[in-house]
Design a binder for these strands. Sequence first.
DNA 1: CCAAAAGTGTTGCCGGTACACCCATGG
DNA 2: CCATGGGTGTACCGGCAACACTTTTGG
Lengths: 227, 227
Amino acid sequence: MKRQIANSFLAVDSVIFGFDGECLRVLLTKRLNEPYLGYWSLPGGLVRVDESTAAAAVRVLEEKTGLKKVYLEQLYTFSDPDRDPRQRIVSVAHYALVRSTDHAIHAGRHTELADWFDLDEKKKLAFDHRKILDLAIERVRGQIRYKPIGFELLPTRFTLTQLQKLYEAILGTALDKRNFRKKILAMNLLEGLEEKEIGVGRKPAQYWRFDKKKYNELTQKGFVFEL
Amino acid sequence: MKRQIANSFLAVDSVIFGFDGECLRVLLTKRLNEPYLGYWSLPGGLVRVDESTAAAAVRVLEEKTGLKKVYLEQLYTFSDPDRDPRQRIVSVAHYALVRSTDHAIHAGRHTELADWFDLDEKKKLAFDHRKILDLAIERVRGQIRYKPIGFELLPTRFTLTQLQKLYEAILGTALDKRNFRKKILAMNLLEGLEEKEIGVGRKPAQYWRFDKKKYNELTQKGFVFEL
DNA sequence: CCAAAAGTGTTGCCGGTACACCCATGG
DNA sequence: CCATGGGTGTACCGGCAACACTTTTGG
């Protein structure tokens, strides 16, 4: 009954987060086969025999979205023997943070039907993917407070208002503009750029850039990011 | 060359922490076979075909130490194709916190050579187990601050000094006695017991108990443990 | 000149930290 | 009566939260 080809045991599934300026979103793909035909699911694939799961996640992500060099981290390994009705498949779930939700989806459309979904649209997903997604959300909520991962979701050049909107979207709370700016600028991790917004019918905002090098230096000296 | 029996792909390795009253320690087992014959290694074993990795970790832990019902959590999945020189084995690492280091080791001795080691004894371990151990230490250091996992390492009845010693051992810093007590007692999660120490040549200390039920209630209301 | 978002300082409060002495017991 | 660790209160300081108005641009 259980046709267990060695490497079909191990899979990766990725929770790919993007930010549209207002909401945090996840990239889902529509299943074209049984089981769960027609359901939305997390993009994933089998791990090859001589590939680490991290490498597999990177590969699958590029296959589905065309994106390379995204922030990718292991989330949790799901191993309930019944999580796939066909046969046992252990899945090492990862989560990814990508900039520019637009770019990702175009590349994905070539192969499969993929789309971005709002997080609070509590759609029913294939397999145990709802559980995986919920865990990923919880993880991102936890990490955003004390790791500067938010910048992975924004263009390299961003305004403080964009950054604040992002934090508000992820944490689900409103933040005070002045306090937010004070705190984030006090860390000295943002480099102010000369350029400003143009063509907006209002006072143009300054652009900023996250100084990853400085962050790494400070971290080694015991500094901890916290917002 | 690669004799890949299906379920031999997946293993669990456990980092089992105990506390001896002074230092945090790990339980290691001595390898009786090649490769790494004679090296110390994390206790581990293969995952059975219809068993989740969590179940496998619980089973292996009981086989090696005789302990049941310990605090056990998934840590990370290690999947470098070359991590085992014989063949590819993906390992889902867990970490466990056990009370009473004495009890654990006796049960273990029946089957294999096992012993507790001080954390800063940077012994060379088999496979990538040093990496796993280091990650586990980091994880415990991070979690002890905002999850009440410390109590899993102490007897159910403990003194505040024991608790403080534990925190100092894990965090690697000295803590102020008065501030420590104030903060932990202010959370209202410790229940003071009538009994006191006996037979010590000094003022006897009061015993306390961690009220897990109250913790769960508070947590649901948004309370977060933090020390 | 109007609409829209950008940008900017001060104050009160709470919580964290620093710090030293008396107490109860066994031997 | 001595040694040992148990147990307790206060004062200062810094960081966090609350809060409203002026500025700059495009249309």
